[in-house]
Computed example of a mutant assay.
Amino acid sequence: MVSSRRSVADASTLTGWFKSSYSGGGNGECLEVARGQATVPVRDSKAADGPAVVFSADGWSSFVKAIKGGEFSG
């Protein structure tokens, strides 16, 4: 299901999705991450059957650390 291109065309084929605790309360900017996979698929919660970006476990950990450290200020 997960391609070597670091994406999944139809994220609904994966199970274990949960919404990020940092996502807003509305239906705006929400991410979901799938647990129980060898890699870390991430999708837009509004597009459950759309694509997902796939991170390595180390890549996802580094990304989350950078977010928490304020490296991506808007």
Rank of each mutant, 00 (worst) to 15 (best):
V54D: 12
G26T: 10
F72E: 10
G16P: 03
L31Y: 00
V53L: 11
S23L: 09
E71S: 06
G69H: 05
A48C: 11
N27V: 10
F72M: 02
Q37R: 14
T39F: 13
K19T: 04
E71L: 02
A11H: 00
S12P: 07
S21Q: 13
G36F: 02
W17D: 08
K46T: 01
S45E: 12
S4F: 07
C30A: 07
F18Y: 06
G74E: 15
T39C: 14
T13L: 10
A52G: 08
A9Q: 09
R35N: 02
S62H: 13
V33Q: 13
T15P: 07
L14V: 11
Q37I: 07
S20I: 00
S56L: 04
S4C: 07
S4T: 06
C30Q: 08
A9N: 10
S45W: 05
G25W: 08
V53N: 05
G16T: 04
V33R: 13
G59F: 03
V8M: 08
V8H: 02
L31I: 02
F63E: 12
S61A: 15
G26I: 04
G69N: 07
A47N: 07
G70M: 10
S20R: 05
G25V: 04
S56C: 03
W60P: 06
R43T: 00
A66I: 00
S23Q: 13
R43E: 05
E29Q: 06
L14N: 12
V53Y: 05
L14A: 14
G25L: 13
R35M: 02
T13G: 11
A52T: 05
G50C: 03
T39P: 08
D58L: 11
Q37H: 13
V54F: 04
M1K: 14
S4V: 02
V53Q: 12
G16S: 09
F72I: 00
T15F: 04
A52P: 01
A57C: 12
T13P: 04
V8R: 03
G69D: 10
G69R: 05
V40F: 07
Q37G: 05
K68W: 05
G24A: 10
G74D: 15
V64C: 14
S12Y: 09
G69A: 04
A52K: 02
A9I: 03
R35T: 01
R6C: 04
S61K: 14
I67G: 12
Q37P: 03
